[in-house]
Amino acid sequence: MGTFQSFRKAYGALKDSTMVGLAKVNSDFKDLDIAIVKATNHVECPPKDRHVRKIFSATSVSRPRADVAYCIHALARRLSKTKNWIVAIKTLIVIHRTLREADPTFREELLNYSHRGHILQISNFKDDSSPLAWDCSAWVRTYALYLEERLECFRVLKYDIESERFTKSAGASKVPTRTRMLGCDELLEQLPALQQLLYRLIGCQVLKESFKIYCAINDGIINLVDVFFDMSRHDAMKALNVYKRAGKQIENLADFYDCCKGLDLTRNYQFPSLRQPPPSFLATMEEYIKEAPQTGSVNKRL
Rank of each mutant, 00 (worst) to 15 (best):
K244N: 09
C215G: 04
Q195P: 01
Y159G: 05
I202V: 06
P278G: 04
V175W: 08
K158I: 03
I221A: 12
L224R: 02
N218L: 11
C215L: 12
E251Q: 14
V242L: 02
L263T: 07
A246Y: 06
E186L: 14
V156T: 15
D230T: 00
D235R: 13
G262E: 06
I213T: 08
K174M: 13
T177Y: 08
I202R: 06
V206Q: 14
L274V: 09
F166K: 11
E186D: 15
K208I: 06
L240M: 10
M231I: 00
Q270H: 13
K261P: 00
A193S: 15
Q276M: 14
L157H: 00
L197P: 03
A239W: 00
R178Q: 04
I217R: 01
M237S: 15
M237G: 11
M285S: 06
M181T: 13
E164C: 14
K238I: 07
F211P: 04
Y199I: 07
L191K: 05
E186W: 08
D255M: 11
N223P: 09
E189A: 14
L198D: 01
D258R: 12
R245T: 04
E189M: 13
E164F: 09
H234A: 14
R165L: 03
D226F: 12
F228I: 04
C204Y: 01
D160R: 01
D258E: 15
I250P: 00
S173R: 11
Q196F: 00
G220W: 06
I250E: 03
K212I: 09
C153T: 15
I221H: 03
R233Q: 15
M181H: 14
E209A: 10
L282N: 04
N252L: 13
K168W: 07
R200G: 02
M285P: 02
A172H: 10
L263R: 11
S273T: 14
S273I: 12
P278V: 05
N241V: 08
S169L: 07
K261Q: 06
K248G: 03
A170Q: 12
C204R: 04
Q270T: 13
R275H: 08
P272T: 11
D255T: 10
K290V: 12
D264T: 09
C215P: 00
E152M: 09
D219W: 09
Q196K: 03
Y243F: 15
K238E: 07
Y159T: 10
S163V: 07
Y269W: 15
I202W: 05
R155E: 08
P272H: 14
D185Q: 13
D160K: 03
C259F: 12
D219M: 09
L253C: 02
R200T: 10
G171N: 06
P278M: 08
P272S: 15
Q249C: 03
Q249S: 04
Q190E: 14
R275Y: 01
L187S: 05
F229C: 02
C153Y: 02
E209L: 13
C259K: 13
Q270F: 11
